[in-house]
Amino acid sequence: MTDDTRLGRRPRGRRDDGAATRLQILEVAGEVFAEKGVDRATGKEIAERAKANSAAVNYYYGGIDELYGEVLVEAHRRLVAYDVLAAVAKGEGRPEDKLRRLLGVVVKAIMGPKGSSWALRVLSREILAPSAMFHVLRERELLPKKQLLAGLVAEMLGLPADHPAVSRSCISIAAPFVVLLIGDRQVVTQMFPGLDRDEQAVDAMVEHLIRFSLGGIAAIAAAQPQG
C-alpha cells in the first residue's frame, strides 16, 4: 500500500477519481449533518458511509468543521442559487416585477420538492442553532443574496441600499421564508391549515407573499419624509 493510499489520497494523475470522492463525501456529509447535526456527526462515520479512507475528510476538506462549512454553502446553493436570483434581480423590467419573480423562485424552492432534501434540513438546524461555521454561510451565500433583495427594495423605496428602512423592509420580506424553512411541515400545516405543499397551495403562497410584500413596501414608501 502506498503512502498516498494510507492517507486517503488518490494516486497522481487520477484527478477525476479525487473529484468524485470529494463530491461523494460532501453528499454523504449533508445527509449525516441533516440527521445528527454538526455536534454529533463524526468524520469517521462520514468517511465510512462515503466508502472512503478514514483520513479522507481531513485530506479533501481539512477537517470536519471545514467540511460542514462547505455543506452549508452547498445546501444554500441547492435551495436557491445566486446566479438564478441575480439573473432575476439584474434583468429587465420594473423592480416590482423582478421582486415578484424573485420571491416566486424562493417560495417554490422551499415549499417544492427541494424542501424534502437534506439541504433544507441542514439549513434549518443551522438557523435554529448557529454553529462556529455560520460565518462561512453568511459571507458566501447569505450576504450576496441579501444584497440583491436590498437593491430591489431600495429602488422601490427610492432610498440608499444601506438605509434603515430598506433593512427593516428586507427583514419583513425574509421573515416568512425563515418560518417556512425551519418549520416542520406537519406542525406548520397543523398550526396554519391550508398551507399544504401541493402545486396549487404553493402558487397561492407565492401570490400572497408577493402581495403582502409589495403592499408593505408601498406603505413604507408613502411614510418616508418628502425632502
Rank of each mutant, 00 (worst) to 15 (best):
Q226A: 14
A219Q: 13
E126R: 05
P164G: 11
R168N: 13
V166C: 03
D203W: 08
Q190H: 14
H163Y: 07
E155G: 01
E66S: 14
A174E: 12
P160N: 04
E126D: 09
A223M: 09
Y68F: 14
L79V: 10
P130S: 04
L159Q: 14
I220N: 01
E139R: 15
V57Q: 15
S169G: 01
G115A: 03
I220W: 02
D3K: 12
L79E: 12
S116V: 13
L137G: 05
K51V: 06
R140F: 13
E48R: 15
D65R: 15
L23S: 15
Y59T: 15
M111A: 14
P225Q: 03
V38F: 07
L180W: 08
E70V: 02
A132F: 11
L159H: 00
L103V: 01
P164W: 07
T21V: 14
A29H: 05
I46K: 09
V80P: 05
Y60L: 05
L149T: 11
T2V: 07
I182D: 07
L142E: 09
R14G: 10
L23A: 15
P225S: 09
T189C: 05
D97G: 13
E74G: 09
D83K: 10
D39M: 09
P11R: 07
M1W: 10
D184W: 01
P95Y: 11
I173V: 12
G8F: 02
G18W: 00
G183R: 04
G63Y: 07
N58L: 09
T42I: 00
L79P: 07
F192Q: 00
G194K: 05
P113H: 10
R49A: 02
L102H: 04
R6G: 06
R12P: 06
G112N: 08
P130C: 06
G13T: 10
A34S: 12
R101I: 02
Q226E: 11
F33S: 01
A50M: 06
V28L: 00
L142V: 15
V84I: 14
V71F: 01
A150Q: 14
F212A: 15
H135R: 12
S117E: 10
G158C: 06
A219C: 02
M111F: 12
V80I: 06
D97F: 02
E48H: 14
S117Q: 12
L195C: 10
P130V: 03
G216F: 09
V187A: 15
G93P: 04
V202P: 02
L99Q: 06
V84W: 10
T189H: 12
I220H: 01
A56C: 04
V153R: 01
G63E: 11
A56F: 00
L142Y: 13
A222W: 01
R40G: 06
D196Y: 14
R94S: 15
A55E: 11
A55S: 14
T5L: 09
V153A: 02
G93Y: 05
M191I: 10
G194Q: 00
G69L: 05
V106K: 03
D17Y: 05
A221E: 12
